[in-house]
């Protein structure tokens, strides 16, 4: 959460990490997940929220959230 809170995120999905100077593009759903992660929600809750908001099954949403978290880890954002 520490790192996450330092990121500059705008509504278009543009993410800037001032610590490293790297910039990223994130998709709409990714944006939603990022926001919720910053707010401290758990993965299950985020998945639930996605399933409610979008046309997606709960399992898919759970998998995608886990996958997204892995990507964030890989990019050293989390």
């Amino acid at each position: 959460m520490h790192k996450l809170s330092r990121l500059a995120i705008n509504e278009e999905g543009f993410v800037f990490n001032p610590t490293t100077g790297d910039s990223f593009q994130v998709s709409e759903t990714g944006l939603v997940i990022l926001g919720k992660l910053r707010d401290g929600h758990s993965d299950e809750a985020i998945a639930q929220a996605l399933a409610e908001k979008y046309e997606v099954s709960l399992e898919d949403a759970q998998r995608d959230v886990a996958d997204f978290r892995a990507s964030l880890k890989n990019l050293n954002l989390i």
Binding site: T29, K53, S71
Partner: peptide
Amino acid sequence: MKPAYEKPVIKKLH
């Protein structure tokens, strides 16, 4: 009618 779902993706920009 829920909006269409896209998988979340984050990509480093070069």
